[in-house]
């Protein structure tokens, strides 16, 4: 990975310059940075797997294969951007989707920290909130056809109970999720902007199913400001 390699080279140069060796306090800083990226990748793999599975892909499909689906690939790109992950980070996922889904509430935490940080800087969190909504939808324990999904998670029981008790009104359902202890960081759970966007994307997923919701995400969050002149090249076709 480009970012990983860059960090390693910089780390070694920096440490040698300061201490004349490869070990120092800064070693721990870089180790932490690397761990953060790994944790973010794990969170991203989790939510992409949830989205792939709920949009009809088989649990034995490898994540990198699932990413061939254009709308899912768009989601992955957007997520990478908001998480500031390297572009290739997720495309290396050879594990089957079914093996990437366990202990989601814990693995989701780095992603939630990034949401908090980005909100503080008034940056967009659309893909991250969609990602969180993907996992909430997965935690409901049923797929688009109504078949049962086994949710392996420390909070699985509470998540299921919330879905059973509060399904009839989306605001109550959302309030229930936000109140589950240990699911969302306290400060984030009371942040109106987060609750609003999380609720929005969960509603879109529930109303449309995951496949169409991914397309809607792609349509609504695409960067339309980019200019592409490549398709307007002169192309008159007369015989040679």
């Amino acid at each position: 990975m480009v970012i990983g390699l860059r960090i390693t080279i910089f780390k070694e140069t920096f440490c040698k310059r300061i201490n004349g060796c490869g070990q120092s306090d800064s070693h721990n800083v870089f180790k932490q940075e690397s761990e953060v990226e790994t944790a973010q990748q794990s969170a991203a793999s989790l939510v992409l797997s949830c989205a792939a599975l709920l949009s009809g892909q088989h649990h034995s499909t490898a994540l990198q294969t699932a990413l061939i689906y254009p709308a899912l690939a768009d989601f992955a790109r957007g997520l990478n951007k908001e998480l500031a992950l390297s572009a290739a980070a997720l495309e290396q996922g050879t594990q089957p989707l079914g093996t990437l889904l366990s202990q989601g509430s814990a693995r989701l935490q780095p992603l939630l920290s990034t949401i908090a940080a980005r909100l503080e800087q008034q940056q967009s969190v659309e893909y991250l909130c969609f990602a969180s909504a993907c996992w909430l939808r997965y935690s409901m324990g049923f797929d688009g056809k109504g078949d049962t999904l086994v949710v392996e998670d420390a909070l699985a029981q509470q998540l299921m109970q919330n879905r059973l008790d509060r399904w009839d009104h989306i605001d109550e359902l959302m309030a229930g999720y936000l109140a589950i202890n240990g699911l969302f960081p306290q400060a984030l759970a009371v942040e109106p902007a987060f609750a609003d966007r999380l609720s929005y994307w969960l509603c879109v997923i529930l109303a449309n199913g995951m496949g169409t919701a991914l397309q809607i995400l792609s349509i609504e969050c695409r960067d339309y400001s980019a200019r592409d002149f490549s398709t307007f090249a002169s192309d008159k076709r007369t015989p040679a």
């Binding site: 399904w167 009839d168 009104h169 989306i170 605001d171 609720s199 929005y200 509603c203 879109v204 529930l206 109303a207 449309n208 169409t212 809607i216």
Partner: peptide, 17 residues
Amino acid sequence: WGRPIPLEAGAPKQTYY
């Protein structure tokens, strides 16, 4: 294209799925 949440704030939204 299900649009459960309207664009206009305060307009009626879909609450049951």
